[in-house]
């Protein structure tokens, strides 16, 4: 995988830790952040998948506080994607 960076694929489980969950503000932040990268970004919950760049997709996942999400990034900057999103989740979307 490492010798072919374009095929790089990373999965990570992230927890929604902010008080109000993935509502408009948090979803907007994820979508804006995802748009900074080239990789394909899929966020899924209980087998339902959302496009990381689509605020509507993310909102329909309906994630209250405590939800665990599977984040999958595929592409040359997958590692950076996961790092950036992990930071965003850990910072509780800079809400608290």
């Amino acid at each position: 995988m490492a010798d072919n960076p374009e095929q790089l694929e990373i999965n990570k489980k992230l927890e929604v830790m902010n008080k109000v969950g993935l509502h408009a503000r948090a979803a907007a932040k994820i979508a804006l952040k995802s748009k900074e990268f080239k990789s394909q970004i899929i966020i899924s919950k209980d087998g339902v998948s959302a496009d990381g760049r689509s605020i509507l997709d993310i909102l329909t996942l309906n994630c209250p506080k405590g939800t665990y999400l599977e984040v999958r990034a595929k592409g040359e900057d997958a590692r950076e994607v996961i790092e950036a999103l992990t930071q965003l989740f850990n910072d509780k979307f800079e809400e608290e």
Binding site: A24, A28, L32, R53, S54, I55, L56
Partner: peptide, 16 residues
């Protein structure tokens, strides 16, 4: 400010 971002993101969202 994020509220305005929300509207912008909806406008360019592929679902929309």
């Amino acid at each position: 400010v994020y509220v305005l971002d929300t509207h912008m993101l909806i406008l360019s969202d592929h679902n929309f």
